[in-house]
Design a protein around this nucleic acid. Structure first.
Lengths: 216, 216
DNA sequence: ATATCCCCGTTACTAGCGGTAACAACAGTC
DNA sequence: GACTGTTGTTACCGCTAGTAACGGGGATAT
């Protein structure tokens, strides 16, 4: 009765295959961007389409699996920066810098993560399904940051609601500024990090109005 | 020689037609979301595809024309809120609220503006063309806000750079928080607005650490 | 009046996409 | 040796964006 051992071996073989396919998909996405076709990915992996579909269900499945790898990697790097033993402002700057360094190092990956090209659920459900459409990575980062805030910062009553709002807000700030910065590169990474941290540290409230017309 | 008058009339007729087509496209996008097909739009307008292509070049052209209308409308509403004669904090809150009210009122439009479904330039240029991929609306809002900040807020030296960074950062914060909020609706709009304004007003810097573990 | 030109509109097509059905070949199990 | 499950194939479906190629009608020029 070799059933269990055989099944085991088969399972691990399937998992290894799955990893190979993911790596091939990775290469293609890195080369062709998020609109890489299933045909191209299959060709890169040296096989044909139906195998991909057997492993991942549909294109959304493959992309979700692919995104999870990168998201997990980025998330753990951010967690490390967020857990460093230093002052709050320093940690915030380190986290911003970690994120920006990551997207700077591999812009194609970043682009794929943020723009899965209308992945997953085609969801023929009409009506207002406006949730989930922005990249899942942003949502996840926002939720995680919200958790960190609620458990470390004293925000008084209603702190949980506000912490989640702040989590998503700060992540969005980081993302939008990073996206813009990555396009034109108008300044150094350090300056960007410092400016964003300044914004979070209330410099907008402290700054005086400029003469001529009402202030901001 | 009726040449000029004839050409004139013809031009205005073409422009009226174009507006009609855009309105039909608007209805379809509002109903089907950003993945509305050219066939569906043509059918809604009561004509066939090639006419659309003659008017707008390609799908990206149509979507850009469509997006410009909504973007302009939203932008002018935001400008009005930003120019109100009151205190800075109040103006910031009013602007946030205007944006959130807009996306709340017509989520499908909002979704279309943010996710043009890989529009426009297929740009076969490989390499790092990571600019421009996030919705043009966000970029435009960020730039506009940056301009407003640089001309109204006293940020000392390097103020222009910092103002642009802040513009994109604040817009991104607003967008991400709004997107998340629109999905789960975890709180009222007022509360969201107040929390985001609090964040911009430096409450993160002022808040104390919570006991148990390092602070944020 | 006739011929010219230009624009609106059509039908019919291409190439490529995501996804699937049907079938072939090989493994290990009974 | 028969059976079963996995791995792989080819050939197809329905859809999409986009494009000829052609027909008809109204204004213009002679």
């Amino acid at each position: 009765m070799e059933t269990t051992r055989g099944a085991e071996r088969q399972r691990t073989a399937a998992e290894r295959r799955r990893r190979e396919l993911l790596e091939a998909a990775d290469r293609v996405v890195l080369r062709d961007g998020p609109q890489a076709s299933m045909n191209a990915i299959a060709a890169e992996a040296g096989i044909t389409k139906p195998i991909l579909y057997r492993h991942f269900g549909d294109k959304g499945g493959l992309y979700r699996a692919l995104a999870k790898r990168h998201t997990d990697a980025l998330l753990s790097a951010l967690r490390a920066a967020l857990d460093a033993p230093s002052e709050r402002r320093e940690r915030v700057e380190a986290t911003l810098d970690t994120y920006l360094a990551a997207i700077e190092a591999r812009p194609q990956v970043y682009r794929f993560l943020m723009h899965p090209s209308d992945d997953a659920a085609p969801s023929p459900e009409q009506g207002f399904d406006v949730g989930r459409h922005s990249a899942p990575l942003l949502r996840r980062l926002g939720e995680e940051l919200g958790k960190v805030i609620v458990e470390r910062v004293d925000l008084g009553p209603e702190s949980e609601q506000m912490a989640r709002i702040w989590g998503h807000g700060i992540v969005g700030m980081m993302h939008a500024a990073g996206d813009w910065w990555l396009g034109d590169r108008p300044c150094s990474r350090e300056q960007l990090v410092r400016s964003l941290a300044d914004l979070l540290w209330g410099r907008l409230a402290e700054a005086g109005d400029l003469p001529g017309g009402q202030g901001f």
